[in-house]
Simulated scan of single mutants.
Amino acid sequence: MLAQNRIAFKEWGAVCAALGQGRQSVLVRKGGIHEGQQGFRVDHREFWLFSTRFHQGAEQLQPEFSDLLQAPIAIEPASEKIMLALYAVVEKVAEIKDPSVLSRLDSLQVLNQETIQQRFEYKNPGLFVLLVRAYQLSQPFEVESETRYAGCRSWVELSQEYSTSNLTPILTDEQFAQQQQALEQIIT
C-alpha cells in the first residue's frame, strides 16, 4: 500500500457507506461524461473514496439497502468540505460484456437491477467490476471542496497527498477471500 496518496475515486455516498460497512466489496463502473471516447479506465490501483450524492437516490438501490442513504458518508455535508474516511485497493478488474451476468452481481453490491442495466447499456454495452479491499481511517478528515472536483468524472486529484497510515481493513482476510471467490464464480 502507498504511504500517501492524492488520488480519489468519485462514487455514490450509499455505495461508499456499503463499502465502509462491509456490505459490498465491488465497484461497478461505466464511466463519467468527462471520461472521453475511451470511456472508463482503471488509472489507479489505490485511491481515497470521494463520496458524492449527485444522481443518487433510493430508487437506484436494492430496497433492503435504502438505509445506506442515511449513513454519515452518504449525507450531503453542511459545509463545502468532503469527508475522507475510506481508502480502497483494487485487487481485480473484470469487464462484463455478457448481460446475463448482471443479475448475479446482486449479492456483491447494493445497486438495483434497473440501475445496473442502465449503466451496462449506456453507449457501448459493458461494465467494469472492480473488486476492492476497503480500509477505514480511525479518524476521518475533511478536505476543502474545489470546483475542479466537480462534474461527472471518476478520478480526481486532490490538492495534496494524504497519509494512509492508521488504516484498518473493513473485512477480515477470510471475509475478503470469500468475496473474491464469490466474484470469481460469477464472472467465470
Rank of each mutant, 00 (worst) to 15 (best):
I96P: 03
E144D: 10
L131N: 06
T147W: 04
P140L: 06
V132H: 04
D106P: 04
L105W: 02
G126L: 06
Q136E: 15
N124W: 08
Y122P: 06
Q113G: 07
N112A: 04
Q139N: 15
W155C: 08
T115F: 02
F141M: 10
R133H: 06
G126I: 05
L105V: 03
E146R: 12
K92Y: 04
E121N: 15
P140A: 10
V143K: 02
K97W: 06
E114D: 13
E142Y: 12
R133F: 04
Y135Q: 11
L137F: 15
A150V: 00
Q109K: 03
L130Q: 09
D106L: 11
L130C: 12
Q117A: 12
S103P: 00
V101F: 01
W155V: 01
Q136K: 13
R119L: 09
A134W: 01
K123I: 09
E121P: 02
L105N: 04
V143S: 02
E95C: 00
Y135P: 09
Q113S: 03
R119P: 03
A150H: 09
A134I: 09
S100C: 10
Q136L: 06
Q136S: 12
R104E: 14
K92V: 15
E144H: 12
S154Q: 04
Q109C: 03
W155D: 07
S100W: 06
Q109H: 08
A94P: 09
A94T: 14
P125T: 06
E121H: 09
L108Q: 04
L137D: 06
R104V: 02
A150D: 00
Y135W: 11
L108G: 07
F128S: 13
R153H: 10
V129A: 07
R119N: 11
N112M: 03
T115E: 08
R119K: 11
F120A: 11
E95H: 13
F141E: 00
F128Q: 13
S107Y: 00
S154K: 05
E95R: 13
Y149R: 00
D98F: 05
I116C: 05
C152T: 02
V143H: 04
Q109F: 00
L108T: 11
Q139Y: 13
A134T: 15
P99R: 04
Q117M: 08
R119C: 04
S154V: 11
A134M: 07
F128Y: 15
Y122K: 14
G126F: 06
